[in-house]
Measured scan of single mutants.
Amino acid sequence: VVEKVLDRRVVKGQVEYLLKWKGFSEEHNTWEPEKNLDCPELISEFMKK
């Protein structure tokens, strides 16, 4: 389960987000493609920053 979106990048035309996973430490954060995500409210919250 995604706890928080930390960053955004574009790699080869694909948007990816750096995710903080609930119950895991920062060392387990991962970059995931936008198309694989199902957390629009967290993405929206990140984009407001």
Rank of each mutant, 00 (worst) to 15 (best):
M47E: 13
W31F: 00
N36K: 12
E26L: 09
L37A: 09
Y17F: 10
G13S: 09
K48D: 11
W21K: 05
E32N: 09
I43P: 02
I43L: 15
L42Q: 14
K12M: 14
G13C: 07
E16A: 04
K49R: 12
C39W: 02
K35A: 12
V11A: 11
E45N: 08
E41A: 13
Y17C: 02
E32M: 15
V11K: 13
L6T: 07
I43F: 03
V5C: 02
Y17V: 04
V5F: 01
W21L: 06
V2Y: 06
C39R: 08
E3Y: 04
L18A: 00
L18S: 02
K35H: 09
E3R: 00
K12D: 14
T30C: 07
V15L: 07
K12Q: 14
K4I: 05
E45L: 07
G23E: 10
F46Y: 13
L37K: 01
W21Y: 08
E41R: 11
Y17D: 01
R9N: 00
D7T: 02
E26H: 09
K22L: 13
C39I: 12
M47I: 15
K49E: 08
E32T: 13
V1E: 15
L18C: 09
Y17L: 06
R9I: 00
D38A: 11
E3C: 05
K49N: 13
L37N: 04
M47F: 10
Q14W: 04
R8Q: 09
V5M: 02
E26I: 10
G23C: 06
P40Y: 09
K22H: 09
V11T: 10
R9L: 00
F46S: 05
E32P: 00
E16S: 05
K35P: 08
K4N: 06
G23R: 04
K22D: 10
K4S: 12
K48Y: 05
E26V: 12
K4D: 04
R9M: 00
E16C: 03
K22C: 11
L19S: 06
V10Y: 14
D38T: 12
L37Y: 04
K48R: 08
V1I: 15
P40V: 12
E32G: 05
S44N: 13
E34G: 09
L42K: 10
N29S: 13
G23H: 09
K48S: 13
G13H: 14
D38G: 10
W21N: 01
E34W: 02
R9T: 01
M47S: 11
H28D: 15
G23W: 08
E27I: 14
I43Y: 03
T30S: 14
W21D: 02
H28A: 08
L6F: 03
E32C: 15
E16G: 01
W21F: 11
V5K: 00
V5E: 01
F46D: 06
G23L: 03
L37D: 02
C39K: 06
F46R: 02
T30F: 01
K48F: 02
L42F: 04
W21E: 01
P40T: 15
E16V: 04
K12I: 01
K22R: 14
D38Q: 14
N36A: 13
V2T: 07
V5P: 00
L42E: 12
F46I: 03
G13I: 00
D7R: 06
F24L: 13
S44K: 15
E3F: 03
R9S: 01
K35I: 13
G13L: 03
L6Q: 06
E27F: 14
D38W: 05
P33L: 14
E16L: 09
K4G: 05
M47Q: 13
P40C: 11
Q14S: 12
L42M: 13
R8L: 06
F46V: 03
L19E: 00
H28R: 11
V1G: 09
K4Y: 04
L19W: 01
K20V: 04
K20T: 05
V15S: 05
K20M: 09
L19V: 15
F24I: 10
E26T: 13
N36R: 10
K4C: 03
N36M: 10
E26R: 10
V2E: 07
V15W: 05
E45S: 14
R8A: 06
L6R: 08
E27K: 13
N36S: 15
D38S: 15
N29I: 07
V2K: 03
Q14Y: 06
E27S: 12
Q14L: 08
L6W: 02
P40W: 11
L37I: 12
E16N: 03
S25W: 02
E27P: 05
T30V: 05
E45T: 06
K20I: 01
W31M: 01
W21H: 05
W31A: 01
K49W: 15
K35C: 12
V2W: 07
E45A: 05
I43E: 02
G13Q: 05
C39N: 06
R9C: 00
Y17W: 07
S25A: 09
R8H: 07
G23Q: 06
E3A: 05
L18N: 05
W31R: 00
L42H: 07
V15F: 09
E26P: 13
P33E: 10
E26D: 15
E34A: 10
E32Y: 15
V2Q: 03
G23V: 02
H28W: 03
L18P: 00
V10S: 12
K22M: 15
K20L: 04
E3K: 02
V10I: 12
E34S: 07
M47W: 13
F24W: 08
L42S: 05
M47G: 13
E34M: 07
L18G: 00
P40A: 13
N29H: 06
C39L: 07
Q14D: 14
V10T: 13
R9K: 07
E32F: 12
K12P: 01
E41I: 11
E32S: 09
V10D: 07
V11D: 10
I43D: 01
K4L: 07
S44R: 12
F46L: 08
I43Q: 03
L19T: 15
L19H: 05
H28P: 03
E41T: 13
G13E: 09
N29A: 14
W21R: 06
E26F: 09
D38I: 14
N36L: 08
V11N: 05
V2S: 04
P33T: 10
Y17Q: 01
H28L: 09
Y17R: 00
Y17T: 01
E45C: 15
E41H: 09
S25K: 07
W31I: 01
E3G: 03
N29P: 06
L42T: 05
E34R: 04
K22S: 11
E3N: 03
N29G: 07
I43W: 04
C39V: 11
L18H: 08
E27D: 14
D7W: 01
E3S: 05
K4F: 05
G23F: 11
G13Y: 04
V15D: 03
K4Q: 08
E26K: 12
F24V: 14
E34N: 01
K22Y: 06
R8F: 07
V5S: 00
H28S: 10
L37Q: 05
